[in-house]
Simulated assay, not measured.
Amino acid sequence: MPRVHRPAVVTAVALAAGLLAAAPATGGEQTVSDPRVVAHLQLARGESPENIALEPDGSADLTLSNARQVVNVTREGRTRVLATLPAVANPKTPVVGAAVVLGIARAENGTLYVNYATGTARTGIWRIARDGSAPRQIAELPANGFPNGLALDERRGVLYAADSVLGTVWRVPCHGGTPTAWATGAALQPLNARPAAKVGANGLRLHRDAVWVSNTNAGTLLRIPVRHDGSAGAIETRATRLFAIDDFGFVERHRDTVLAAMTGGSEVELVRPDGTHRVVLTSQDGLSNPTSVAVRGRSVYVTSAAYFTRRDPNLLLARVHQRARG
């Protein structure tokens, strides 16, 4: 979630400070350790990392929201620019007022897809080919919306995008075309009355035949089953009291266990399948308004955008493992 006006900052921090204590951890569950910041980015250049997609070699493709860039960062911290989204004259983007690149998804052939929010006809999903050609818009989404989290279902040939302002999950053919409002409802809507703080559906992941979505204002983690015909099932609330939640990732081989970025409080929480949760990373580990989490094997990647702290946007790596009982 990009930097918003000061009322939203106060709201996010207050919500994070008021986070109720989660249930105590049980023995033998997953935990996170050995955090280290592998890449420090520069706010002065607009380098606030918003979302993340992983490459086969373990490097990470990040969207830098205010720089309108997609970069690749190796596990050793080497960074190179993959693409820059075109500048937009007089952007009228809801929430932030600037053109920002947000969610990212990667296809098996290396093609990248990103959400670009501009407040103009250029708002939508853009494709970034691996041949170095210029990014190309493949779907236009409503200019008054804020397409945030993004996921690709290659088996069905579709992309899903979470719209934070319109409270909608859009579905778009991965080759491009007309978007469909795939899921709507009160559970996806923003709750804050102030325009600069209206952030509902935010993070989005495809997991075990369902689209999972976080709602930042509501502090909830939602699951939307994908029916056999591709339509959306009933929205299920899987966890609550996740105030100022942004994007999230699933711990592999552990069913519905989630690591969620809590941007307001600069924390990452482990969310159990029963909905209880606990903090596993904090600002002391290097987090600075984290926005997204990706997990591969035992490796955990966390982007920190520093939208509110205005301090040290970065990419952090850590290890997820089974905690000893006792």
Rank of each mutant, 00 (worst) to 15 (best):
P2Y: 09
P2T: 04
V4K: 05
V4W: 05
R6V: 14
A8H: 07
V10R: 15
A16D: 12
A25T: 11
A25S: 11
D34L: 08
R36T: 09
H40I: 00
L43T: 09
A44M: 11
G46V: 04
S48H: 05
N51D: 14
A53M: 02
A53C: 06
L62E: 01
N66T: 03
V71I: 12
R75Y: 00
T79E: 11
N90E: 15
G97R: 11
L102V: 01
A105E: 02
A107M: 05
N109P: 11
L112T: 03
N115K: 01
Y116L: 08
G124M: 06
I125C: 05
G132E: 08
S133V: 03
I138E: 00
E140H: 13
P142N: 12
D153C: 05
V158C: 00
S164M: 08
T168N: 06
W170F: 15
T178C: 00
P179L: 04
A183Q: 13
A187E: 15
L188R: 03
Q189C: 06
P190A: 13
P190H: 12
L191S: 13
N192I: 10
N192T: 13
A197N: 09
A197L: 10
K198S: 15
G203Q: 06
L204K: 04
H207E: 06
R208P: 03
A210Q: 07
S214M: 13
G219K: 10
H228S: 15
S231L: 03
L242H: 08
D246G: 07
G249R: 04
T263Y: 14
G265V: 04
S266P: 11
E267D: 10
E269I: 01
H277M: 02
H277N: 13
V279S: 05
P290F: 05
T291C: 08
T291A: 13
T291I: 03
A294I: 00
S299R: 12
Y301D: 00
A306W: 07
Y307W: 15
R310I: 04
R311Y: 15
D312P: 02
L315Y: 04
R319G: 00
V320T: 10
